[in-house]
Nucleic acid binder design. Structure first.
Length: 365
DNA sequence: CCCTCGATCAC
DNA sequence: CCTCATATCGAGGG
């Protein structure tokens, strides 16, 4: 049985790189791709930016207004997201990636795992040269650079691809795992975000080496069984998760920002209905049904609330979904009489394919 | 075992 | 000042 060889491919600053390709004279200057919320001219956040913009401290998630301040007088370009375009580019790249490796797993618009175990018979150096081939092919085909991690499992491949960005290639050999992980900060572990990092910090755990010294029962106590076990194993570079083709998503959601905060249902309803209709339309496109309808409300204080209802029978019917959304919003506003709503969303979950149409993949995309 | 809801992550 | 979308976990109730 050869040792597993897994690749993780991460497309570099993907949205901003797509924008550079659409408009080559943007290259060399800061490019900031923004999600505008429509409240005021500059309201919204940065989705992605290129590395020129990062030099100024701009990064994903910060308010657009702050990015503008950081960039000062620099000749920067602020562009709205053009998701459909990025999805097209992504689809073509994913098609190419899929031709390499035995198993392919797309994770979001700009990431994928590939299993190379049988291709390489467990030889990680062969995998490394295939990784170079992949990088070159994607660059030639779509003018998109990417960063790749090659490792004995998904966890290490993902940490690896993140380590030398952009245009990186990181190979983690099984005998080097300790050395590779040791000094890294715990937040390099996928799944360790702000909250988990804070808790670890309280335990005086900053590096993966330090995490590895804690016994699993302590981690269970603090993080619960699942996350505790995950952290314990991750600190040792252990991960058995298979590279598996992803099936259809099991939920689908739409969210938007209101022009102004309000508790008045008639001010929210038109937007909510649009969201419900758009979500239902997408559901129908995919020839799927949903079992549960939820609404999401983000209030003036940015607290997040949800209400959900499981339907008597799965549906894709637009008016059923819209009505359920409306009922849930009414319920919510009654339960929270002082709430002022900033953003609303609709989520459809418990998705499944309609009977008699098990294989719909060839009609999609 | 199912439902509802909040929390977390990461895009 | 603070977007959008997906997945997963755990608690609490039934």
């Amino acid at each position: 049985m050869p040792r597993r060889v897994v690749l993780h491919v991460d497309l570099d600053y993907f949205y901003a790189q797509c924008e550079e390709n659409l408009n080559p004279n943007l290259r060399g200057k800061p490019v900031v791709v923004c999600v505008y919320s429509g409240r005021t001219d500059d309201s919204g956040v940065v989705s992605t930016c290129n590395y020129e913009a990062r030099k100024y401290g701009v990064k994903a998630g910060i308010p657009i207004a702050r990015a503008k301040k950081l960039l000062g007088t620099a000749d920067a370009s602020f562009r709205p997201t053009n998701r459909p375009h990025y999805a097209e580019v992504s689809d073509r790249i994913m098609e190419t990636l899929e031709t390499f490796g035995d198993t392919f797993e797309k994770v979001g618009i700009d990431e994928a795992y590939l299993d190379f175990t049988s291709e390489t018979n467990g030889d990680i150096y062969r995998a490394e040269s295939i990784a170079r081939e992949i990088k070159q092919k994607v660059l030639e085909q779509e003018k998109i650079s990417c960063s790749v991690g090659v490792a004995p499992n998904k966890l290490l491949a993902k940490i690896g691809s993140d380590l030398n960005k952009p245009n990186g290639l990181t190979v983690v050999r099984p005998e080097n795992v300790r050395l590779f992980l040791g000094e890294l900060s715990v937040d390099k572990i996928p799944g360790v975000g702000k909250r988990t990092e804070e808790k670890l910090d309280q335990l005086k755990v900053k590096t993966i080496d330090q995490l590895a010294t804690h016994d699993v029962s302590v981690l269970h106590e603090i993080f619960g069984n699942t996350l505790g076990t995950y952290l314990y194993r991750a600190a040792r570079g252990e991960d058995e998760e298979p590279v598996e083709r992803r099936e259809q998503p099991t939920q689908l959601s739409r969210i938007a920002t209101l022009k102004r905060n309000t508790h008045n249902i008639s001010e929210i309803l038109p937007l909510l209905e649009d969201l419900a209709n758009s979500a239902a339309e997408k559901l129908t496109e995919k020839t799927m049904t949903c079992k549960t309808v939820s609404i999401l409300a983000i209030l003036g204080d940015l607290s997040i609330h949800s209400k959900s209802r499981t339907l008597d029978s799965p549906t894709s019917d637009m008016s059923t979904i819209a009505q359920a959304s409306k009922d849930l919003l009414e319920q919510f506003l009654q339960s929270e009489s002082t709430a002022t709503v900033r953003r609303v969303g609709v989520k459809l979950s418990g998705l499944s394919g309609r009977s008699g149409q098990t294989d719909i993949s060839k009609f999609l995309r």
